[in-house]
């Protein structure tokens, strides 16, 4: 830490005050409020949507048992989508960092480019491309790769593929950033010490790129686990995720306590997984 710029003892606190106050009011307070809602019960004889505090912790158990399938599905789909995105993104990031030469910046822009069209438009584009009227299904049927009765949309495959696609740039960019930072001399040194290409990759490149892999998997897994848009557009009632349940509890059923209990369980599960994962992967770069 170098002491430069305007630095009186109170300065950091003055700089922090507005933003932190904002986050207290509109992030921590809502979360606390949500916690409070999660143990409420309907008022006897009240209208729909009217609840009172009765500290009913059973809400959590009820909500979980009622929706354990959707919970399981959310984490399973998110995990598969994360692994698939990692498999696609790592070689891509490697190619951009080491093989692109002058094209590097152009290719990086191309990775982010899909973001610029609305992600909903892209997801719906996939639905139409893979749908009955799209061009993929007839070709696959003519080649007898899929049977005439098989559809590509409204399936778990479509939901996971949609999530993989949507979060791919989140995976690629951090991995690229950490591969790009690797000093090529370390790779040369490894070669000089008689390591072949595979050994160099395993013992030098991969460990040095781990911070990017950790950041990328988190940036993919967290939003994927809470996502409901891909499941709503590309899925069917059999592929409902926990996000779909929370959304419908809030808006269609007006069951705030259950929606709150589910949100909290989801957040707690994700935070525990993330903490364990960061510990295991051994990076504190993120925070």
């Amino acid at each position: 830490m170098v002491k430069t710029g305007i630095s009186r003892p109170g300065t950091p606190y003055l700089l922090l005050l507005p933003g932190v106050a904002f986050l207290f009011t509109f992030f921590l307070w809502p979360i606390a409020n949500l916690a409070q809602t999660s143990t409420q019960t309907p008022i006897a004889g009240g209208d729909t949507g009217e609840y009172e505090q009765s500290l009913r912790w059973q809400n959590y158990i009820d909500a979980f048992l009622e929706n354990k399938e959707q919970f399981g599905r959310s984490f399973l789909y998110a995990a598969i989508a994360t692994l698939a995105a990692l498999a696609i993104a790592y070689p891509l990031a490697y190619a951009i960092a080491f093989k692109a030469g002058k094209m590097k910046n152009v290719l990086l822009v191309l990775v982010v480019a899909p973001f610029f069209t609305s992600f909903l438009l892209r997801t719906i584009a996939w639905k139409q491309i893979l749908g009955e009227q799209g061009f993929v299904v007839p070709v696959l049927r003519d080649l007898h790769i899929i049977s005439p009765a098989t559809t590509l949309t409204s399936s778990a495959f479509a939901v996971v593929a949609g999530m993989t696609y949507n979060f791919l740039p989140f995976m690629t960019l951090p991995i690229y950033a950490s591969i790009d930072r690797i000093d090529p001399r370390t790779l040369e040194a490894s070669g000089d010490l008689y390591a072949n290409g595979i050994t160099t990759f395993r013992k030098v490149t991969l460990p040095l790129s781990m911070p990017g892999v950790v950041a990328g998997t988190l940036l993919t897994f967290i939003p994927a686990a809470g996502d409901y848009v891909n499941a709503a557009i590309l899925g069917s009632p059999q592929t409902k995720m926990i996000g779909n349940v929370i959304e419908s509890r809030f808006f269609k059923v007006v069951d705030y306590p259950t929606a709150a209990a589910l949100s909290f369980t989801l957040m707690a599960a994700i935070l525990i997984l993330v903490t364990v994962y960061i510990r295991k992967a051994g990076t504190e770069e993120l925070v």
Binding site: F26, P30, I31, A225, D227, Y228, G243, S263, L286
Partner: peptide, 28 residues
């Protein structure tokens, strides 16, 4: 480090939880 954590938390919170919690505050 507390401030760092406070910055990290909204990124680690699924969007649906952020959205739902703010709505429940506004409703309250």
């Amino acid at each position: 480090s507390t401030t760092n954590l406070m910055i990290f938390l909204p990124m680690a919170t699924p969007e649906i939880v952020l959205g739902a919690s703010l709505l429940s505050l506004f409703l309250t």
